[in-house]
Design a binder for these strands. Sequence first.
DNA 1: TTGGTCCGGATTGTATACAATTACTGCCGC
DNA 2: GCGGCAGTAATTGTATACAATCCGGACCAA
Lengths: 230, 230
Amino acid sequence: MASTTKAKSATAEEIAEQLSDAVHEHRLKPGAKLREDEVSDVFGVSRTVVRQALRAMAFEGLLTIEKNRGAFVSKPTLKEAHEVFQARALLEPSTARAAAERTTPDDIALLERHIAEEHDALDRGQPGRALKLSGDFHLEIARIADQQTIEQFLKQLISRSSLVIALYWRQRSALCESNAHHALVDALRNHDGATAEELMKGHLLDIYSQLDLREHDEGSTSLKEALRRS
Amino acid sequence: MASTTKAKSATAEEIAEQLSDAVHEHRLKPGAKLREDEVSDVFGVSRTVVRQALRAMAFEGLLTIEKNRGAFVSKPTLKEAHEVFQARALLEPSTARAAAERTTPDDIALLERHIAEEHDALDRGQPGRALKLSGDFHLEIARIADQQTIEQFLKQLISRSSLVIALYWRQRSALCESNAHHALVDALRNHDGATAEELMKGHLLDIYSQLDLREHDEGSTSLKEALRRS
DNA sequence: TTGGTCCGGATTGTATACAATTACTGCCGC
DNA sequence: GCGGCAGTAATTGTATACAATCCGGACCAA
């Protein structure tokens, strides 16, 4: 599963982060199962630590743990997909406004480096990594706003957004959001809170509108799962 | 700690819920330590299950787990206190508006029963229980709005609010919020989203303004802890 | 073939044993 | 009395052993 069989002896946080990255970059796709002793082999720790990591990820919404069955990468429903972006629409614009009033030159430099990395990843044909960086960009804004609580929620929402994108993204349109991020940085640099708020609102709507939200059959697995839950 | 030494063999979720109730009702106060084998004795399960419960509570912000030291009921800082109510101000008014459009007569009956219980608890001299019910009232509104994601966040925010209130509530003013809740129910019954939103906004500001947010020394323990972190 | 049942293997859930770390007490020197 | 130091008890962190549950295939009967 992972690129290289990694080093031994890791903490639960490190395991969770590496697995989270894999999910964010769509190397682990929704529905994939994570067996405990498989993960424990890869990371060279006991199942005890692995279970900590998996449960932590479940709490963030990345995994869904079914009792006696195991941990699976979550498959957000259409309803959950809507809810995620509704919640983001409530939290992020105000946060962007607050961030604009506190942005320092260092922050600007960091954000611009971030965008550059994002472009770089796209050029190298690593869309998964670009997507993860794009999510981190949004997180960075919450950090600048110095709102740890909201940042924490946003982390979960962005994680779930990544799953939503994996499931419902329209293939035809490439991710053209880099421009939106650049405009946001401009607003932040100018301490223009109102514009930052509006840009963020529009940016979220833009992503939202690029999702395919129609009801559709989910392939063979959904039938089995539907029966299981009967 | 608990009222009666409870029955044996409970699940992690049950343990977390009972402990959470104790925190919400201020029977477990911020700073209190929860030892693993003590809890495991009370509930008649092994430490393994207890640790699951404690970690789950830590994710919700109720507990803070310090490595090799144990789990303590969280003591939100002033900054965190502000952040909690800022986040609630972003989430709850819109949610109340959404709820107003979906409220059913059954929901109204439920909410009114809820308020009655709240008054009852106050009359019986159980302010802790009244506070918990008050928090559940807010959660109920998110449920009516059919926003599970926001409901989940709100659960955490209300938990933390309970801790904030335990630490920063001005003793002099009794909790007079019951009227606010009643007015909200009226707005919901009339499907008056705009009014519900405004009432919720005002209600949150009301609670917020009743907190004592000045900087102040935190007593003897903070010194020891400050030294520990040096 | 279809349907059902039973059994074996695989996987997760729980308890326990052990290691690592911390806190505490008592003692000593000053 | 005060501050440092050591040894021990107490507590948490991790690994492992065992129990419970689930999945899948074999087998049999209709």
